[in-house]
């Protein structure tokens, strides 16, 4: 009850300061409009994925969904020139593998810098910070050449393994450790006779869970959406990931004949991410600010 009174007081005060309610209304209207601007594309996508090929070919605009959603889904599943399930599986393997390796080894590397004192620590740390902003694109040429030399083109290895060295994730983990991982815990474990590697796996990793969760999601999504490198590395049909299949939709003209299937394919490519995001949005939005601002 006291809380309500306090709110009442607060509101009275606002009336006095004036305009705040008006500002709140304006802010809410603008925000709703902006949210609509963000969401309308997904609504249009859904509508069009539920329309028949013939209806879509008329080029008309519809506000309400049609009844071809499942037919389009069925057709897409049975379209022999688009290996959608396989693509999805490939995407999951690559993104999942990337997320696991990236978070584990980034945490390990961050822990090395955080928990130990060694001669080259400063140099190595600065080095990792320096390479953080080098885009992967500028070394892509040498990367494909090297992968050809070691016969790794058209495999998942060049898309998963490199994530062991992820400076951005490393940096996030380091920041997180600075604020949450007291070195005394590590020392206590040492006194208990725990080996260093064991300490990391059984004590440090569990404490880092929130940070690992956030970074796992970011890494997974980043890898799921990645188009540039996989397009250069993967060649055979059965290895292609979803973004490459989407690009194929765009370039192989004949595939565009059934627009219902095209929309369905786009929907299936982004739907999993939307579901995961909505389920975990609390961590993600918080994580963005946490990771980037401290730098």
């Amino acid at each position: 009850m006291g809380k309500d009174n306090a709110m009442q007081l607060q509101m009275d005060k606002e009336k006095v300061t004036g305009g705040i309610r008006a500002r709140r209304v304006v802010a809410n209207i603008v925000l709703v409009l902006i949210c609509l601007l963000c969401l309308i594309w997904f609504y249009l996508l859904f509508i069009n994925a539920s329309r028949s090929r013939a209806d879509l070919s008329m080029g008309s605009f519809r506000v309400l969904p049609g009844n071809y959603f499942f037919k389009n889904f069925y057709n897409l599943m049975h379209n022999s020139s688009l290996t959608i399930w396989r693509g999805m599986l490939n995407s999951i393997i690559i993104s999942g593998g990337t997320a696991v390796l990236c978070t584990y080894f980034s945490t390990l590397s961050a822990y090395a810098i955080h928990a130990y004192d060694f001669k080259l620590k400063g140099v190595l740390f600065t080095f990792i910070l320096l390479i953080m902003t080098i885009p992967t694109q500028v070394s892509a040429l040498g990367f494909i050449k090297l992968m050809r030399v070691v016969h790794l083109t058209d495999t998942f290895v060049p898309l998963i393994l490199p994530s062991i060295a992820a400076p951005v994730t490393f940096f996030y983990m380091k920041q997180y450790m600075d604020s949450t991982l007291p070195i005394q815990i590590v020392e206590a474990a040492r006194i208990d006779g725990s080996g260093e590697f064991r300490t990391f796996n059984t004590i440090v990793l569990p404490m880092m869970k929130p940070a690992i969760a956030v970074q796992a999601i970011f890494t997974f999504v980043g890898s799921w959406n990645n188009y540039f490198t996989p397009a250069l590395i993967l060649k055979s049909e059965e290895n292609k990931t979803l973004p490459i299949l989407i690009a194929k939709l765009r370039s192989a003209d004949f595939l565009k004949f059934d627009m219902g299937q095209v929309y369905m394919m786009i929907l299936l490519s982004i739907f999993p991410v939307i579901v995961v995001y909505l389920a975990l949005s609390k961590f993600i939005v918080g994580g963005v600010a946490l990771g980037s601002v401290k730098g």
């Binding site: 028949s52 090929r53 013939a54 209806d55 070919s57 008329m58 004949f254 004949f257």
Partner: peptide, 12 residues
């Protein structure tokens, strides 16, 4: 067959 919209199952 491929391009000219021969599809008896749709409504057009």
């Amino acid at each position: 067959n491929f391009c000219m919209g021969y599809d008896e199952s749709d409504d057009v």
